[in-house]
Each structure stands twice: as structure tokens, then as C-alpha cells.
Amino acid sequence: MSDTRPRVALLVTCLVDLFRPSVGFAAVRLLEDAGCDVEVPAQSCCGQPAYNSGERHLAMKVARTMLDALEPFDYVVAPSGSCTGMVTRHYPTLFHGTPDEERACALARRTFELTRFLVEVRGVATTGSRFDASVTWHDSCSCLREAGTRQAPRTLLGAVEGTVIKEAGDREVCCGFGGTFAVKYPAISTAMAQDKAARLEETGADTVLSADLGCLLNIAGVLRRQGSPMKVRHVAEVLAGETAGPAIGEPDP
């Protein structure tokens, strides 16, 4: 691990902010343990829903507030491949040909998905947590194809005491979330999620983990509706050892 303490902005992501704050606190702990000074500048959404729905001018307005909020930091880290990909891959495209293009490109270069940042930038080999369960990993499309996160979560989970990883089939296939796609074409989205849930359940694992809350809400939505015993959690909770609270979609006892 390097000696200087970088200033890191947590890109909370709107889903974590609204649905599951525990992931945000887990991410802060993991980053602090990895020697970072973490700040949470006031923020909202990265603009992806508007960007993917053809509303570029709206997306740019939202994205510009993020650009302003996240700019003053050494790094920006998000507990999400999707929001990371929005900043790293799509902000440069969105701001292309505008006065903010260079700022957007610079921000893109400093922005990372959480597990990849811990392993590849901060050299973390273990988070020192314990989780007694067999887990299966859901690769989100954005982690695989936009954020460059494939091995990092497996490395970190492999070092969690008591955890066994059981790999699922069709790991590169989308779970059907796709942001607004999930509500624009719910029948197709649900059919995709049911296929994904079946592959995950075939592993016999107790818990499914992922880096993206959107996928997890979708997968949990199908598993809970089917009455499956499989639990659904964000990877940051397990890596930070914060698994006492209810899993996603479970009642608060």
C-alpha cells in the first residue's frame, strides 16, 4: 500500500443513497482501512437514466452537478460498476465538443469501481473480514464491460474468512435490469432475471453478491417473489464485515 493518503470522494450512487445506506457506510470503512481520506460531497445521480433514454440535455445538466461536486478529489470511487462506467465511459462522450470535455475526461481517469480500486490502486489483498457462507458472484455487465472489474471482487472475497465462492453458469449474461429497461419492458426484464436467478440458485450458494445495487434489486426481486432462501447482498457489506442487518428485500426484524 502506498504511503500518502489520497483524498477520495465517495460517489454514493443514488440507489445506495435511497435504498441501502449500509453499502455507503461499508464503502467508507473499506476505503478508510485502505488508507484513504474519504469525503462525501453533496451529490445526487450520475445522469445515466436520462442518458440512456435519449435525454442528453437533461443528462448533461445532472452530470454537470456531479462534475462540479467530484472534481476536487484525487480519486472518485463508486460501489457500482454502472455509475463508474457512466463517468469513465460515457461522460467523455456526453461532454464531447463542450467546454467541459477536458474536465469530464480528467474525472473519468480518476474514477474507479470500489473493489477494483481497493485491489488495483490501493494494493489491498484482504479486508480482514469474516462471513460464514457460500457465496456466488454476479458479474454486472457494467463491471465486466465498462468498469474493468472482473477479478478484483473474487480476489477480495477469496480472502474473506469463512467464505466459499461457487461460480455460476452464464456469468457474462445480463440479469435484465438495464436501468429504465426494467420498467419499460418488464416482461422481458423479468424473464431475463428469472434465467439469471436460476443460474445463481444452481450453484447451491447461500448468498449472491454483486457490486451493483440495480442488479441486486432485480435479482432479489425475483428470488423473493419465488420464495427462494437465497440471500442477496452488496459485496461491500461482506468485505466490511457488516452483515448483521437484513439482506436485500428481507424484513427488518
Partner: peptide, 13 residues
Amino acid sequence: TRDLASPAGATFQ
């Protein structure tokens, strides 16, 4: 077709 997990309470921020 799916359950929608409820928010945990106050927002993170």
C-alpha cells in the same frame, strides 16, 4: 412480477 425491496430508512447522505 418482482418484489421491490423497500428503502432502509433515511438516505445515506
